[in-house]
Amino acid sequence: MAELWSPFASTGKPAAKGQPQWAAYTLDKRATLEINAECRIVNNPYSQERALWERLDP
């Protein structure tokens, strides 16, 4: 975690040896880095939940 955090703190992009390359966030793809025992990139996670909240927002 510290190896991911250090580059993120200085450049805005988390990076660590052996971890996936995380592209900049855009509203089109909503690329999200899921940090776990094995990190992975998830595009548009929780899209259905977000759509529900967007419909409920007046």
Rank of each mutant, 00 (worst) to 15 (best):
N36Q: 11
K29P: 00
G12E: 05
A37E: 13
P7A: 10
Q19W: 02
P58S: 10
P45R: 06
P14V: 05
A31H: 11
P14C: 05
G12I: 07
D57C: 09
T11L: 07
Q19T: 11
W5C: 07
A37R: 10
N43W: 03
W22F: 00
A51N: 12
K13E: 04
A2R: 12
A9Y: 01
N44P: 01
L33M: 15
E54G: 00
G12A: 08
W53K: 14
N44E: 09
A2M: 07
M1N: 04
R55C: 01
A31L: 06
K13F: 12
Q21C: 01
P45L: 07
D28L: 10
R50I: 14
K17E: 13
L56W: 03
A16S: 07
N36L: 05
R50C: 04
D57I: 08
W53T: 09
A15Q: 11
T11Y: 05
A51K: 14
M1L: 06
S47G: 10
A15N: 08
A37M: 04
E54D: 13
G18A: 08
G12Y: 03
P14Y: 03
S6Y: 03
L27E: 15
L4F: 02
G12F: 04
Q21N: 06
A37V: 09
F8Q: 04
E3C: 00
G18E: 07
N36I: 00
A24I: 08
K17Q: 10
S10A: 11
P14Q: 02
K17P: 09
R30Q: 15
G12M: 07
R55G: 01
N36S: 15
P58N: 11
N44F: 00
S10C: 03
P58Y: 02
A24T: 13
L52T: 12
D57N: 11
